[in-house]
């Protein structure tokens, strides 16, 4: 009876894993399929990857995506770090309400965020393009980045900074030699997370991008409308792998060295 239950549980777990990863596995598999149609397996090939990298429009989308992601990452990480440090150091009166306001955007549906930004940009008569894309990406990444950095700061506590000040370090020296090195894994984690989210965002980008700022996810969507080709599989595979690598690094850094031995 016990054994039976254990087997069932195992089968159930495997089903969940299959449910989660089967579509991605199929997508990756068919990116190496030597056939235009996604239905049958006709042998291994890398030609879809080759044609992908000879396609100017793909390369332009990749370039757009990377530019937006890099700028978003740098700006978001700096803004988030400054805000998190301010919240950590000064406990102001409406701290709780303020924290709530920071968490809220994480819960707001993306489609509403995209729509509201579209409305806002057109209100101010700003033309859609890379700038609006970057502003929108910073907006939705900021909350996540702040939460990651705040977690790191509250894990550090106040003792270390006080100890530094006590030993004669000015506020700047304290930041430079104690706070920054200790929260840097958090900063890197926040940066990688931001980069990933910017790179794979579709919904919000869909609303705020212009004719010359097609990003990779938008390009993939456009290709799909003309029928699913193995090139899309290849492109998606590259995107997925890049994102997985970054998430793994971000996760391991976010928790690295947080457990202080006592």
């Amino acid at each position: 009876m016990m054994k039976m239950r254990k087997h069932l549980l195992f089968a159930y777990s495997m089903m969940i894993v299959a449910f989660l990863y089967l579509p991605i596995a199929v997508l990756i598999l068919y990116s190496f399929n030597d056939s235009r149609i996604n239905a049958t397996w006709e042998g291994f090939t890398l030609k879809w990857y080759q044609s992908l990298f000879q396609n100017d429009r793909v390369l332009e989308a990749l370039y757009n995506s990377l530019t937006v992601a890099v700028i978003t990452t740098v700006v978001t990480t700096i803004l988030a770090a400054l805000l998190a440090l301010a919240l950590h150091r000064y406990k102001f009166r409406f701290g709780k309400v303020f924290n709530g306001l920071i968490y809220l955007p994480i819960l707001i549906p993306e489609i509403l965020m995209g729509l509201s930004m579209l409305v806002m940009f057109s209100q101010f008569e700003i033309n859609m393009g890379k700038t609006t894309l970057i502003i929108a990406h910073i907006t939705f990444c900021l909350s996540f980045a702040i939460v990651i950095i705040m977690a790191r700061l509250s894990g550090m506590g106040q003792d270390l900074e006080e100890a530094a000040e006590d030993l004669g370090a000015s506020p700047w020296q304290t930041f430079r030699h104690v706070t920054l090195p200790i929260i840097s894994p958090g900063l890197i984690a926040a940066a990688l997370m931001t980069f990933t989210m910017s790179l794979d965002d579709f919904v919000i980008s869909f609303f705020v991008s212009g004719p010359n700022s097609t990003t990779l996810p938008l390009y993939i969507y456009g290709m799909v409308k003309r029928g699913v080709s193995p090139e899309i599989n290849a492109l998606s595979t590259i995107l997925i792998l890049a994102i997985i690598v970054m998430i793994v690094i971000a996760e391991s850094l976010a928790f690295k060295g947080t457990k202080r031995s006592q």
Partner: peptide, 20 residues
């Protein structure tokens, strides 16, 4: 006067050693 300009030092209960 801020702590970093006072000619005294404190030993903290939980040591507060710099882990890095």
């Amino acid at each position: 006067i801020p702590p970093y300009q006072r000619d005294m030092n404190m030993v903290f209960q939980h040591y507060a050693l710099f882990p890095h």
